[in-house]
Amino acid sequence: AEKTGIVNVSSSLNAREGASTSSKVIGSLSGNTKVTIVGEEGAFYKIEYKGSHGYVAKEYIKDIKDE
């Protein structure tokens, strides 16, 4: 099942092309942005936001229960 997560940073969080800190940054998400978690790979979540996919470090995403 898809989960919703909240970007848990004070400034912004980089979204990357792949599940690695050396992957190209494809965008950034500001704190408290809601994202859909579609998968996980190592220390990263694969997320969907406004129709695009990217990878973000798990430690900066807070899971919330689907309402």
Rank of each mutant, 00 (worst) to 15 (best):
K24I: 07
V38S: 03
V7T: 06
K58M: 08
S28D: 05
T21D: 13
G18C: 15
Y60E: 06
A19T: 07
K46R: 10
D63A: 10
D66F: 14
K58H: 02
S30I: 12
S20A: 07
E48L: 14
Y60C: 14
S28M: 11
S52M: 14
E67N: 13
E41W: 06
S52F: 12
V25I: 14
L29F: 05
K34E: 08
T36P: 01
V25S: 06
D63W: 11
A1G: 14
A15P: 05
L29P: 01
K46T: 02
V7E: 02
V7M: 05
H53F: 15
T21K: 10
E40V: 06
Y60I: 03
S10C: 15
G31T: 11
S11F: 10
N8P: 04
I64M: 07
K65R: 13
A57Q: 14
S23D: 05
T4W: 12
I37F: 01
G42R: 02
I64E: 06
K24D: 06
G18N: 10
E17W: 05
E48G: 02
K65P: 09
L29I: 13
G31C: 13
A43F: 08
K62Y: 09
N32R: 06
K50T: 04
V38Q: 04
A1R: 13
E41D: 10
K46L: 09
G51T: 05
N8A: 12
E40S: 07
Y55Q: 00
A57R: 11
A57T: 05
A57K: 11
V7A: 02
I47P: 02
D63Q: 11
D66Y: 14
D63M: 15
K50E: 11
V35A: 00
I37N: 00
D66R: 08
H53P: 05
E48N: 10
E40T: 06
V7I: 09
E17T: 04
G42Q: 03
S11I: 11
N14P: 15
K50F: 11
V38T: 06
K58T: 03
S22D: 14
Y55I: 02
S23W: 03
S52A: 12
N8R: 09
R16T: 13
S23E: 04
G54A: 15
V25A: 06
S23C: 11
G42V: 02
E59C: 12
I61H: 05
K62V: 14
K65L: 10
T4G: 05
L29R: 00
Y55L: 03
F44L: 02
S12K: 09
S10L: 12
S28W: 09
T33K: 04
K34W: 09
S10N: 11
G51N: 07
E17S: 07
F44E: 01
E2K: 15
S22R: 06
S52V: 13
E41H: 07
G42C: 06
K3I: 09
L13V: 15
E41S: 08
A19P: 15
G54T: 05
S11R: 07
V35N: 01
E59I: 12
S10T: 12
I61S: 00
R16L: 15
K46Y: 08
T36R: 12
G54W: 08
N8I: 11
F44H: 01
T33Q: 10
D63I: 15
S30T: 13
V9R: 05
G54Y: 09
V56R: 00
I26F: 02
N14V: 15
E59G: 05
K50D: 09
V7N: 03
K50H: 11
K65Y: 10
S22C: 13
K62H: 09
V35E: 01
L29Q: 01
